[in-house]
Amino acid sequence: MEAALVHVLAASSTGLARSLSRQTMRDVIAGKIAALIASRVLEPGDEIPSERALAAALSVSRETVRGAIQSLAARGILDVTHGTRTRVAKSDVGGLGLSLPGRLDVSDYTLDDVHAARVLVERQVVTEATGRISDDGLATLGRSLAAQEACLDDPVQFLICDREFHAAIYRSCGNVLLADLALDLYTYLLDSRRRIVSRPGRIAESIADHRAILEALAAHDAEAAVAAFARHEMRIYHSTAALLTGTEARGAEALSTVREPDRED
């Protein structure tokens, strides 16, 4: 399962990509690891990939990776113990969080407000991405989907892959601001999302949604891609609402009411 985590760490987040010129490679790698912790995809006690695996995936030396890990360990963020895998020690990444996605604190808003905003933003982002996505971008999504299918029983690994799948699509829209905004909305209640995908069958459902999204993007069919994204977001909305209220999601009944977005005249 380590390959799934390594694959995600290899891709730059939108926020970090704009500041590469002001950071050393060690800082960039440390920032990527910190981003996963800040968004609560990686939590205290979770293992991170080995130095060798990270170095191979990121095309940097093991010394560079080691420096990034030591930097985070010096801040108390990672726990490095000889003879064991490096683990996340705490969730507070301190000042590193200032350079990570999350400029908009979506936690201040209600689930309904975030859902409505996400549907609107993703509709525009996905429409643009469908026309702009490259063969390399589609290949990245294909690898991400394969990684997701390899971690059906690992919610943490799946959410890491899930985040990169969405981020890769957002970046393909060609508008950095919209991509960042979409990613900010995506991070809403990720801790709840981790609990949801821990339930039987939930990861498989998300993977099926992702497969439909990828097929639409590969066909450059904007209408189908927007509809697939809307269905996926509606599933997330209902499962999150059910968790927050302590009720069971209505599942197929709720999803059957999803309307495909109307075409613009």
Rank of each mutant, 00 (worst) to 15 (best):
I77V: 06
R250D: 15
V197M: 04
A179V: 10
G76M: 02
G76A: 02
A68E: 04
S50P: 04
L20M: 07
S91K: 07
A73N: 00
L244P: 03
A30K: 02
A225D: 05
A204V: 13
E264G: 08
D265H: 13
H232K: 10
C151K: 03
E51S: 07
H82D: 00
A242E: 11
L177C: 05
L42N: 01
L54M: 10
R22H: 10
V60N: 01
A146G: 12
A4M: 06
V197F: 00
R163G: 08
S172D: 04
R171G: 03
A212K: 13
T187Y: 15
A208V: 09
H115D: 13
I77K: 00
A10M: 01
A146C: 10
S134F: 02
R18G: 09
D265I: 14
S59V: 05
G97Y: 05
E128K: 10
G246S: 03
A73F: 00
A249I: 07
L36K: 02
G95C: 11
D136L: 14
V156L: 06
A56M: 03
L214G: 11
D27E: 14
V65G: 06
A10T: 00
M234W: 12
A241E: 15
V156D: 08
A56E: 09
A225Q: 08
D180Y: 13
E43V: 14
E128Y: 05
A254D: 14
D191E: 11
A11R: 15
I33L: 12
S13I: 06
G97Q: 06
A17C: 07
G251L: 12
R52I: 09
H115V: 06
C173V: 10
A89L: 04
N175H: 08
L104E: 13
R202E: 14
R103C: 06
H115P: 08
I236S: 09
D162N: 12
L54I: 06
T81G: 00
R75M: 11
D79E: 13
T245K: 13
T84K: 00
L36R: 01
L16I: 11
L217F: 04
I213Y: 04
I69L: 10
L78A: 01
I37W: 00
S107L: 07
A254C: 07
H210R: 13
V126I: 14
E253S: 05
R118G: 02
A74M: 09
I213H: 11
E260K: 09
L100I: 03
I29A: 02
A216P: 09
S144C: 12
A10F: 00
G174T: 02
A241P: 07
T84M: 01
L138T: 08
I213F: 06
A249K: 10
I33K: 01
V41H: 09
A168K: 07
L20I: 02
C173K: 03
A38L: 12
S239V: 12
A146W: 12
H7D: 02
T64F: 11
G95N: 13
S39L: 12
